[in-house]
């Protein structure tokens, strides 16, 4: 027979007892664990995202540093090349100047030697010519006048050469 009776009240009490027991002893740990897990997953995802961003930033930094390093290396090599070129040019210039100086000195020496040799030759020629001439004419030609005559002849001879 279907009728409303005290079962209604008893059922309400039953449910309240069940609700109280479960809410007090069972749901709190369960909800806490579920919330903890949720928070942990959110945190982990955030951390992972942060780590990824950090890694990307670090990578960009490294790439930039690498580019800088490469640029610096290129600069250093360029600079070294330039220095070497400068040194080379300088040495070449110096060597050329030295060579020219040496050439000039040598030319001067040669000219001096030549002049000296000409003077020597003249002296010798005068002496020889005088001796030869004296022998040829078989008389002494040692007067100052003779000497001068011979000297003039010699000079003329030498100049004509």
């Amino acid at each position: 027979m279907v009728s409303i009776n005290a079962t209604l009240i008893a059922q309400i009490l039953n449910f309240i007892v069940l609700l109280w027991v479960l809410a007090k002893f069972a749901y709190k740990p369960l909800i806490k664990v579920m919330d903890d897990r949720r928070n942990r997953i959110i945190n982990d995802l955030d951390t992972a995202e942060q780590t990824r961003l950090d890694a990307e930033a670090l990578k960009a930094q490294y790439v930039e540093q690498l580019a800088n390093a490469r640029q610096e290396a290129t600069d250093i090599v360029d600079k070294a090349n330039k220095v070497a070129q400068n040194l080379h040019d300088e040495f070449m210039e110096q060597a050329r100047a030295e060579k020219e100086a040496m050439m000039a000195t040598a030319k001067e020496r040669i000219e001096q030697d030549k002049q000296q040799a000409l003077v020597d030759i003249r002296t010798q020629v005068i002496a020889l010519s005088t001796q030869i001439a004296s022998k040829v004419v078989n008389q002494k030609l040692n007067s100052a006048e003779d000497q001068k005559l011979v000297a003039d002849a010699t000079d003329q001879f030498l100049e004509n050469r």
Binding site: T7, A10, Q11, N14, V17, L18, V21, L22, F25, A26, Y27, P29, L30, K32, V33, D36, R37, R40
Partner: peptide, 24 residues
């Protein structure tokens, strides 16, 4: 009443079994 109590018991056992050692 008996069936209501049995239901309460089953619900309580299931929920307590699930939450007794609730883990992450």
């Amino acid at each position: 009443m008996y069936m209501s109590w049995l239901t309460m018991l089953i619900v309580a056992v299931i929920v307590f079994a699930a939450t007794r050692k609730a883990e992450i």
